[in-house]
């Protein structure tokens, strides 16, 4: 394992020049995955259609990828990327993994290759759930990074199966008849464990050391490792500049998407999120920073705290109880062997 600072010193394969929004968590996550993967192995990256893809792989400015200024002769710094369609990231990665392995099996290549796939939650959990689960089920030795912004951000912030209850999205608008998203998110962590993943984690770069350590472990996993990265979306969640990392951390601590790492055979743990609701930061503070929850909470001028809007108390309580069940669920999953 490398230290946090050692990772910072590495050369990321995700370069500046993407057209992602300022302060995009996907960008921060890919910067770090790019750094951790600068480990002496050639990297093949696959990416599903998503914000991260259209904002970084635009012809003729494929600006945002490649291990920059290293000599092109240095194969350990070699980097390739492929995109096909929404659901394809795991399948493309699996194919590249298999071809690399079969070439190695023939003695046709002898230098190590690592394969990483990235999708959004829409790509991985809606249109691409089948692809993801089957790649896991086939025990493909890839690292799958799912950037979970809880919406189809690329098409304009619509509902996805990872959308938090009550969140306002373009297709779950708030109106007199509906208070935002009426559904609970899919239990994707449990699904991945059940499908046979070697490692499943949920962690964002807001937990910086844990994040890089988790990606390192994932890259070393000998079956499929899936890392869900909670990715606050500045344009879709509608929060202020400079709040991305803070929100990622607060949401994890509040129980909306607790940091969680599980390894097959070793079990897992919930990190930096208390099991008891009273020991966690107030949920209202997390909701209040995002205009997608503007219908639930407002700032109380007297206390400066966010509180439930009059009449919305039952919804905020439902939200709190969902958060509690979410935390409990992860604590129970952590006990799986």
């Amino acid at each position: 394992m490398s230290g946090y600072k050692d990772i910072a010193l590495r050369e990321s394969s995700f370069r500046p020049g993407s057209t992602l929004c300022p302060g995009c968590m996907e960008s921060i996550a890919l910067q770090n995955v790019g750094r951790v993967s600068d480990n002496g192995r050639k990297t093949i990256f696959s990416i599903g259609t998503s914000c991260a893809e259209v904002s970084s792989l635009a012809f003729p400015n494929v600006v945002a990828w490649g291990r920059g200024d290293a000599s092109p002769d240095d194969f350990a710094k070699s980097f390739s990327i492929i995109h096909n369609v929404f659901e394809s990231a795991p399948t493309l990665a699996e194919a590249a993994r298999d071809v690399s392995d079969i070439l190695a099996d023939h003695g046709a290549i002898d230098r190590p290759i690592q394969v990483i796939a990235a999708s959004g939650d829409g790509g991985a959990l809606a249109i691409g759930l089948r692809s993801l689960l089957h790649t896991i089920y086939r025990q493909s030795r890839i690292t799958m990074v799912v950037l979970v912004n809880e919406i189809f951000a690329n098409t304009g912030f619509q509902y996805s199966p990872a959308t938090t209850p009550f969140a306002e999205t373009s297709t779950t608008p708030v109106g007199e008849a509906q208070a935002g998203n009426p559904r609970l998110p899919l239990d994707y962590i449990h699904l991945c464990i059940a499908a046979g993943a070697g490692m499943v984690a949920q962690v964002s770069p807001a937990h910086g050391k844990l994040f890089v350590k988790t990606i390192e472990k994932a890259l070393a996993c000998d079956t499929t490792a899936v890392v869900f990265v909670p990715a606050p979306c500045i344009s879709g969640w509608k929060f202020d500049d400079g709040e991305t990392v803070h929100l990622a951390e607060l949401g994890a601590q509040c129980g909306a998407y607790p940091a969680f790492v599980w390894e097959r055979g070793k079990g897992g743990a919930v990190k930096d999120c208390a099991r008891e609701a009273d020991d966690r930061p107030r949920l209202e503070e997390f909701l209040g920073l995002q205009r997608r929850f503007h219908h639930l909470v407002q700032k109380d001028p007297a206390s400066g705290q966010f509180v439930a809007r009059p009449g919305r108390e039952p919804d905020v309580e439902r939200m709190r109880s969902w958060t509690q069940s979410n935390v409990e669920r992860l604590f129970r999953l952590a006990e799986l062997p």
């Binding site: 050639k42 792989l57 635009a58 012809f59 494929v62 390739s80 990327i81 492929i82 096909n84 071809v99």
Partner: peptide, 14 residues
């Protein structure tokens, strides 16, 4: 180049 023997991007958008 291919993904294995190259430094390249497939499937860009235009």
């Amino acid at each position: 180049p291919g993904l294995v023997n190259g430094d390249t991007a497939f499937g860009t958008c235009v």
